[in-house]
Structure formats: C-alpha cells, structure tokens
C-alpha cells in the first residue's frame, strides 16, 4: 500500500458522475480488480474522513488510475467538480479483489466465463476487471449494466473493448426496460456452470442478483460499500455480519462470496 499525491490530469463530467484520471510520480503497486482507494477530499470540516472509491481503471505505464465518482454527498460533489491540475492525496490499493482464475492450478471449480453485473455507479470496478480478464487471462466477460435511465450508463464504449455489453434501464430509455435481473441474456447463462457472477451496485440489486445466482447454482461474488473510516481493517466500523461473524468490508472485503453473507 502507498499513500501518495496524485495530479488530476483529466476529468469528464456527466449529470451524476465524473470520470477522474489521476497520475502520481511513484510507480503504482499492483492493483487487483475490485480493490479500492481512499481519497482525501480537502481540509473542510464536513469532509473529515477519506472517501472510499473503487478503481475504475489502471494505466500502469502512466502511473494512472481512473475513478468513476457519483455525487452522493459533499465529498463526492467536491471530487466531481475538481479542476484539472488539482492534487489529490490517495491511499491505495485497499481491500481484497474479485476472484480471478488461477493460472497455476487446474482445479475443476475454476471459472471459465464471467458475468459482470453492475448497477449505477457500481459499474465502476467492472471495467478494470474486464480489462484484466481479457488482457491477462484471455477471457472476454459478459457485462450486464443497469441504470435508472440512459444517462446512468456511462463509459459503454470502454466496456465494449473488453466484452459483450448488455444494458437495462428502469425507464426503458436504453437497453431492455426493467432491472438487470429481468434481462433476457440471463436465461441462456444459467446452464453455464463454469460461469462466475460478479456484481457491484445498490444493495437491493446485488441481493436480487445473488438470489438469481443462488437459484441457478452459480458462484457469485458481490462488492459491498459499508460506511468506513480507516479503510485498513483497524477501526472495525464497516463490518458486515457474515457466517464468520463480523468482517471488515474494507479489509476482508469489499468482495464477498454470497455464501458468506446472511442476506
């Protein structure tokens, strides 16, 4: 883990979210898909603690990370409006990761295909996940991305570089109308027992995906976002009740297998 000052080199803004591209001088440590960073916002009393943000993409050769940030409060609003050139202090990388195929073993439980389901800004970590799967494991995942309306579905072009993209919107303004769990592509996927489902999004959506995956006997992981302070597993604030008792979302997670959770 490192703590480092990053420079905002580019920002792209949509209605609710901004894409921040940040570079640092030091060489980035290896970052795994599903890991997150802790961002210091400013010296304002109302944003005292760091904000945990998942890693949207990594460009190792530029020491660059991308963060897709949704405005949900004062801290994220400040981040979404930062001027290019701003210095942002970041601790990274934090937490565990989504399960990747193991290149060294040939166990049968090995995932052969991936379905990456994202809702709202929860699509963020899935882009980097898709990139790693394709470039390091030669797996082209299926992305299923959902939002309230078309304006929630950002970065679709980037996702298409790494896999097939299916979308849903609640108002029908893009993709199939409804929730991700209603999408027609799911039907043909339940038969694929080598399929690993990985999901990040609002809790009700993740619970619905978990329910679907459980019923279809598919292995499923979800990424939680409990309120946290330290991000390092020290303060024990962000706990989730699991089959192993209270676990820290920041250190034991954010990714959990649905069988660990008491949902």
């Amino acid at each position: 883990m490192i703590i480092s000052d990053f420079t905002l080199v580019e920002i792209q803004k949509w209605t609710k979210v901004s894409l921040l591209k940040l570079q640092c001088e030091e060489r980035l440590p290896n970052i795994l898909p599903g890991q997150f960073v802790q961002v210091r916002i400013d010296q304002s009393p109302s944003t005292y603690l760091r904000r945990p943000i998942s890693v949207h993409n990594v460009i190792p050769e530029n020491n660059e990370i991308w963060l897709l940030v949704q405005k949900v409060g004062k801290g994220t609003e400040t981040l979404c409006e930062l001027p290019v050139g701003s210095i942002v202090n970041i601790v990274l990388p934090l937490g565990n990761s989504f399960t990747l195929p193991c290149l060294r073993c040939s166990c049968q439980a090995q995932p052969t295909d991936y379905l990456l389901v994202g809702g709202g800004v929860g699509i963020a970590p899935l882009l980097y996940f898709g990139k790693v799967l394709q470039t390091q494991y030669n797996i082209r995942p299926t992305f299923l991305l959902g939002g309230r309306s078309q304006s929630d579905l950002v970065q679709i072009d980037s996702f298409q570089m790494y896999g097939d993209v299916y979308t849903t919107t609640e108002d029908g303004s893009a993709g199939e109308k409804g929730f991700v769990t209603n999408h027609s592509v799911l039907e043909q996927m339940t038969a694929n027992k080598g399929l690993q489902v990985c999901c990040c999004g609002p809790k009700p959506m993740m619970m619905a995906v978990a329910k679907w995956a459980y019923a279809a006997h598919l292995n499923c992981e979800v990424s939680l976002e409990n309120m946290m302070a330290c991000g390092l597993g020290a303060c024990l604030c962000c706990v989730e009740k699991t089959t192993e008792g209270h676990l820290c979302v920041c250190k034991d997670g954010p990714v959990f297998n649905i069988n660990q959770l008491l949902w």
Partner: peptide
Amino acid sequence: REGNPYPRMAETPSGMLNAVGLQ
C-alpha cells in the same frame, strides 16, 4: 466480543462518532 451491529460510524464536523463496542 462481537461488538455492536452496523452502522457503527457516522462522520461529524471535523470528527466522527463510533459505536464499535469493543469487538
């Protein structure tokens, strides 16, 4: 000790509240 149920933390102006409960 299992500690208290979630949520255990709230950010406040220049500070935070915690209720970890000695987990």
